[in-house]
């Protein structure tokens, strides 16, 4: 579960009571573009909402590389996908992102990376397919175990995207160039979600109209027993790397947490290089253990995390 840091007091109003057709973080605005039924709105993080026109009827919104959005006409197939103007958020009639291959199957919230030249389509439960924009060739797919049919795919960084499911709140980070599933996590169920690629935050719009902001670091749920790497016993005074891994409730790594290290023996047998270290992107914190002069006996290493 991602760590939530903010809930807006203001509530975004859904036009005609209908849940929004999409939410996208626009890097140039440092705010969000909301497809709100028959209106388009600019929404700030605190829930301030300003109407800025009407969308073209019968079109849906998708996400685009770099913190932008794009538009699809959903009444026809195969489709052209259009870039959007950064001032008005409206589609750019001459800005077709897939001039060489019309997209035959797609969903609102699908993702276009016109820099890497790929289109990501959420096909079915847990399955995201990746197509080459140049010719429509399927270059790969990401299968997310027990994953839902994702509602939107949003840009995170070059080659990486988050897939969001509003009903379950499930979030999956994928590398679509490799292509692989990096990890999964969760937020509270929502009506629409976006990824703030400037501050690296997941931002959701709840069914209650409130904006919720989550850090991409999951709430720690499990800290593994410290283990030597590579496996084996230390030899006398020679140091040996020891690792512990901090993960969330779905096994996702928890980055940037301080791990406290301690030897429990009285007196301690051997020593630790550091008494604290920080978890990296894989959720791992490392230390070095130096054994005593005599190799016999046992020692216990205790690790703790301060949340």
């Amino acid at each position: 579960m991602f760590e939530q840091i903010y809930t807006s007091t203001k509530a975004v109003r859904f036009e005609s009571g209908i849940q929004p057709g999409g939410l996208c973080y626009l890097a140039s605005w440092d705010a969000f573009f909301l497809l709100n039924f028959n209106k388009v709105d600019k929404v700030f993080r605190d829930g301030t909402q300003i109407s800025m026109g009407n969308p073209i009827s019968g079109w849906a919104m998708g996400n685009r590389q770099g913190g932008r959005h794009c538009w699809f006409p959903y009444s026809i197939s195969p489709i052209d996908c259009y870039g959007a103007d950064e001032i008005t958020g409206q589609y750019n009639p001459l800005g077709i992102l897939n001039p060489n291959w019309k997209i035959p199957a797609w969903r609102a919230g699908d993702y276009v990376d016109d820099v890497a030249g790929v289109f990501l389509h959420s096909v079915s439960a847990g399955l995201i397919k990746i197509f080459r924009l140049a010719d429509g060739y399927e270059v790969g797919q990401v299968l997310i175990p027990s994953g839902p049919l994702y509602d939107s795919i949003a840009y995170v960084s070059p080659g990486q995207a988050f897939a969001f499911d509003k009903e379950s709140g499930k979030v999956a980070l994928i590398d679509y160039l490799t292509p692989t599933l990096l990890w999964q996590s969760k937020v509270a169920p929502f009506a629409a979600a976006a990824f703030d690629c400037r501050h690296h935050l997941v931002v959701t719009l709840g069914t209650d109209g409130k904006i919720r902001i989550y850090l991409c670091t999951p709430v720690p749920a499990s800290l593994s027993a410290p283990a030597f790497s590579p496996v084996g016993n230390p030899y006398r005074l020679a140091g040996k790397k020891v690792i512990t891994t901090l993960t969330g409730d779905m096994g996702e790594p928890c980055q940037d947490y301080w791990i406290h290290w301690e030897l429990l023996g009285t007196p301690p047998r051997g020593s630790l290089l550091k008494d604290k270290s920080k978890t990296d992107a894989q959720g791992q914190a490392e230390n070095f253990y130096f054994g005593p002069v005599d190799t016999g006996g046992e020692e216990t290493i205790k690790v703790r995390v301060i949340v």
Binding site: I5, K10, F44, D46, H199
Partner: peptide, 12 residues
Amino acid sequence: AGLTTPVPVSRM
């Protein structure tokens, strides 16, 4: 026209 409420964007 307005000033939005300050919102945290990093870990507290």
